[in-house]
Simulated scan of single mutants.
Amino acid sequence: MNLQEVSLFLVITETRSLTQAAKRQNISAMAVSRRLASLERELGVRLVQRTTRSVSLTQEGLEFLPYARALVDAETGARALFSPSTQDAAGLLRITAPSGFGRRNILPLIPELLADNPRLSIDLQLSEDVVDIVGRGIDVAIRIAPLKDSTLIARKITDNPRVICASPAYLNAQGTPRSVADLIQHNCLRLSSVPQWIFEREGEILRVSVEGRFSSDNVEGVRELCVQGLGIAQFTRWDVTKEIQQGDLIELVLADVEPQALSVWALLPSTRYLPLRVSTFIDKLKSSLTSGINAAGE
């Protein structure tokens, strides 16, 4: 299989245009069309649907996409393996992560990653949406919620249980809840997407309806009002590690339930060949979060 044609196919999937792919590769649109047709003939399938303005992947194109990336990444890795001058991570690293977690725990890592790896570029997409990482060309997705069955490969980075917190000022004024039933007496600040708070009891999931005067689709907003003393809120631990360490928030323990055990996961399209840029990022994130755990325990 011609790797230049495979690489061109990846450019076409990114630009969604034969014309734009030609400009990026500095060749004619006719040459792009010929090389794409050559790859399709070799595979015996149609990879893209062509229109006058854009192209879209066929089902066969979607299925071939992760293999195409693996082939190109494997070639890049093989070249780097035998070139002492190119031992740093290189290429475009595409990451998707929840917005709150990404701003607090991934964005601070970017300057050092780029400084240590001059040939690396990073595209960080922060969103609460669960995206198709294969179809969108994402290298790694950071997920917090419980994982659903899928063909993706999951690597655990660290534990991240749900916790409930309040500011010292709020607890001094309103008292400290000791059980789930006590939550009824408190103003509970909620994420709009999480209408019920989730706990565990004897290994079973327990969903508790809570009431409050404020909700938001943004974890930063809920955290800010919680710090200001407007109520109690439920977060995942990595949303509030800093505030707990500084004493701005206090983690509450309820006698009749336990925090839901969640984790921070890195989801990958495949581990058949893991590009150095991906493993470098995962190692960096894991090291950073581990350092945070150690700091919290001191």
Rank of each mutant, 00 (worst) to 15 (best):
T58S: 07
R35D: 03
Q59G: 12
G61S: 06
T158K: 01
T280K: 08
G231Q: 00
Q4K: 10
S54A: 13
T76R: 13
E202L: 09
I244D: 00
P108G: 05
T13F: 01
H186M: 03
Y67N: 14
V219C: 10
T241P: 00
D73K: 05
R155D: 05
Q185Y: 02
L107M: 15
L8F: 02
D123M: 12
D182Q: 07
L47I: 00
E128I: 13
S179E: 06
V194E: 10
G102Y: 10
N117F: 05
L230E: 06
E40V: 13
A89Y: 05
P118H: 02
A295K: 15
P146V: 13
V6I: 12
A37W: 03
L109P: 04
E243L: 06
T13R: 08
N2W: 04
Q49I: 11
E128K: 14
P259C: 10
K242W: 07
L171C: 06
A80W: 04
E258V: 09
T52P: 05
L47Y: 00
Q174D: 04
L126H: 07
G61T: 03
A266W: 03
V130Y: 11
L206K: 12
A145C: 01
L43D: 08
A22K: 03
R41F: 11
I250W: 05
T52D: 14
I250S: 05
P111R: 05
E200C: 10
Y67S: 14
I95D: 03
V130H: 14
L71K: 05
I293Q: 08
A169G: 08
S28V: 02
G91M: 01
I95A: 09
T151F: 15
D116E: 11
L152D: 03
D239T: 10
G247M: 09
N105P: 01
I110T: 02
N160H: 07
D248A: 15
G297E: 13
V55T: 11
D256G: 03
L10H: 00
A295G: 10
I184A: 13
R213M: 06
A90M: 04
L65E: 02
E40N: 08
D123W: 13
G221K: 14
A68N: 01
V222N: 04
N160W: 08
R53L: 15
A261D: 14
I184E: 06
N172G: 04
L93I: 10
S167L: 03
I205L: 12
L124V: 15
R223K: 04
I133C: 01
Q20M: 04
E204Y: 11
R34W: 12
P108H: 08
Q196V: 11
F281V: 09
T15W: 00
S17G: 09
G203S: 01
I198V: 15
T86I: 09
T58D: 14
E5S: 09
Q4N: 12
A80T: 12
